[in-house]
Amino acid sequence: MDVKILGSGCANCNNLEKATREAVDALGLEATFDHVTEPGEIASWGVMKTPALVIDDEVVLSGRVPTAETVKALLRDRG
């Protein structure tokens, strides 16, 4: 599984990365993490509100930090 966090290094972006890492660990999944901070690349995903979460080349969440439960549900759908 390929996970990308899109965000300019803001506090919420780090919170999202932390929540996602925890959810991946909790579900016992294998995933590679990538934190994309380049504005051009963030925008090319169609994301205009950071932070955003990309799982296997699909934007699944944008503009907010989800609860751990929400991240788990998103990961399970694609796991």
Binding site: G40, A43, S44, W45, G46, V47, M48, K49, D57, E58, V59, V60, L61, S62, G63, R64
Partner: peptide, 11 residues
Amino acid sequence: ETTLRGKAIDP
């Protein structure tokens, strides 16, 4: 030069 790939999701 930025092109949009994938479709944007509406939060």
